[in-house]
Simulated assay, not measured.
Amino acid sequence: MTDYPIIRTVGLTGILVTFAGAMSEEANKASVAFRAAVDAQDWPEVSETAMSLVSVFIITDLVTHDADALVERLRALLETQDWLAAPLPEGRTLWHIPTVYGTDLAPQLEEAAEAAGVDPDEAIRQISGTRVRVLTIGFAPGQPYLGELPENWNIPRQKDLSLNVPAGALVVAIRQLVIFTNTTPTGWRHIGQTAFRTFDQTGPAPFALSPGDEITFPQVSRAEMEKLLATHPDGYGAADREAIG
């Protein structure tokens, strides 16, 4: 069995620290906490950090900087605590994003509910009542992968693609939710629609969400959603938020 965490160089672009071989709650929390700890070091040779579900990528120029020296500093930081038991960092945000479930706006709710072994009303209750965490950002700018949902939502992706799922769509598969940044084809099932936008390239903070943030998706009516779209046509402000952590 491989002992984690593992430290590896990635070409000449950086160093990857991996906490597990597959997604788990503990490994994802460890990645969020460790990334925050690396950022707090403010090492001059580190230009940026990023993370996947269970890894942290430390971006640096390994042509210019000594990889072995940085690996040793990362190893020393790893040894300061049990990262699988580390608390999530402070400065996170809890978002409440109003969502229309089902209807022609999100036509695959019934199909997803059947795959999860519940009726549509219970599916809405479970999704809207679960507080999920931003596990990572990926695929499109600012696009969050959120989880984890209860075990019955470990449903597979579709075999075929839905060709044009809109921006703001709430989609589900493999115990995770995603809010789409852009209109895109997908194999994930479209169960809800929001007025929220995850990416604003003109703003000082282009990504609305960060790994470690938490989200709820309270149910609203179509009329309430249309009011949100009218009052927040760019999608920003179409959610309530509060500081946590």
Rank of each mutant, 00 (worst) to 15 (best):
D82R: 09
P107I: 13
L109F: 05
L62I: 01
L105H: 03
D104Y: 06
E90A: 15
L88C: 11
T93Y: 02
L105N: 02
P87T: 08
T80N: 02
A69R: 10
E79H: 06
E111T: 15
G102E: 03
P87L: 10
P107E: 07
F57E: 01
I97K: 08
E79M: 06
R92F: 10
V100W: 07
L74V: 15
L84R: 14
F57H: 10
Y101W: 03
Y101L: 05
E72N: 14
R73N: 12
V63W: 11
A69F: 00
L78C: 13
L105A: 09
I58S: 00
D104E: 15
W95G: 07
H96C: 09
I59D: 06
H65P: 03
H96P: 00
V100D: 06
E111H: 05
A67V: 11
A112C: 08
Q108R: 07
L62F: 00
E110P: 01
E111Y: 02
A112G: 07
E111A: 14
V63H: 13
A106M: 06
L78W: 12
A76C: 08
Y101Q: 03
R73G: 09
D82Q: 04
L88P: 08
V63R: 13
D66N: 15
Q108I: 05
L88M: 15
A86G: 09
W83H: 07
E110Y: 00
P107C: 10
T80G: 01
D104Q: 13
P98T: 05
T99Q: 09
A85M: 14
I58G: 00
P87W: 10
